[in-house]
Nucleic acid binder design. Structure first.
Lengths: 185, 185
DNA sequence: CGCGCGATTGAGTAATTTCAAATCTAGTGG
DNA sequence: CCACTAGATTTGAAATTACTCAATCGCGCG
């Protein structure tokens, strides 16, 4: 079922009912509760996740024990430790749930099989990756170009929904600013 | 022939001679000289570029006229203003040659046709994009996690070749540091 | 009421920027 | 061989930005 996944895919490639029927079978459903970890540093990363409902963060904990948020993911977003997954390394990131969350999960192998079986899906993921790449370029640009304050207002403009759901300390971590500095904006 | 392109693709998908023969025809060859622009802000971005030889930089010029380097590209790398290309917008980036450069060029449409005709190539570009995405995540992480100095030494470790070919002012621009600060490391 | 979490405020400190000037280097022409 | 120039790099000093640490505030919930 999961019409949210179907709609998400169909933004890029149209699907017949039969195709979607098939595609769906590559995914498994899983529920997580607030504060629960989906990926944990040091462990193998088998799956990639599509968010049906809820909110997660991916973060890195550095040598001094400080954490930096690399990515949020809410409904309609994909998330995992891609670096670890592709290279078959243990995770360097942690991913946990900021809210109760429902995910569709697909393993690296199953995703490859899916792409092999459906050229359409290979296309879909190629385009998705390209959009992801562009989004990260924009984020890098905002590091290069803007000071903390304008990164903040820019994020506020781009994802107002996030600010309703996430404590400001996490926003600060995502922007690379201390929470004190952020609260002075 | 362009064996560098073939080898580059074959790091991810094996090709028969006939396949490569075909694939090659989707690209056109073009030479640029040092300081020449490949993409210019405000213009349409038709092509994506694969570097056979030489060195380029992609940069953004902000309202105050300062420029920030988003990407370097040397042999074996792909470059264009992806944001502009995918969304059919005028370029917001500039790309110019730091050295005399030889490129293989492919238009957005031809790349799509190539991916349509060769599932293998769609796969290739999906994997390439994923690696690109990961690399940008790492770069963001180094903005979040490290101060300017350790970003510098990290880059030095990762791409020593770059430092032989690029003036330090450009490295500074890439790292988001003033050239004066960089020269004090 | 009081606890706990998130957010804010203040003060001192560290990192980086800016602007200006000095130095270095490679290439050119006399 | 030398003087000269343009570009790149370095250095100095003041100003700015953001950080850290510590304390305080505000609010919802048991």
């Amino acid at each position: 079922m999961y019409t949210i996944l179907r709609q998400h895919i169909e933004k890029i490639v149209p699907l017949t009912n039969e195709e979607y029927e098939q595609i769906q079978t590559y995914f498994t459903f899983k529920k997580f509760r607030k504060h629960q970890f989906v990926v944990q540093e040091g462990n193998a990363v088998e799956q990639e996740y599509f968010v049906l409902k809820g909110l997660l963060k991916a973060f890195y904990i550095n040598a001094e024990g400080k954490d930096h948020i690399i990515q949020f993911a809410m409904e309609d977003w994909w998330i995992t430790d891609y670096q670890a997954q592709i290279n078959r390394n243990p995770a360097t990131l942690n991913i946990d749930c900021i809210e109760d969350t429902e995910l569709l999960c697909i393993t690296f192998e199953r995703k490859n099989e899916l792409c092999q079986a459906f050229h359409k899906m290979e296309h879909f993921f190629r385009i998705k990756s390209a959009y992801g790449y562009i989004a990260l370029q924009q984020r890098i640009l905002s590091f290069l170009n803007n000071d903390a304050q304008s990164r903040y207002t820019q994020l506020l403009r781009q994802y107002p929904a996030l600010f309703q759901r996430v404590p400001k300390a996490l926003i600060a971590s995502y922007l690379g600013v201390s929470r004190e500095t952020l609260s002075r904006f």
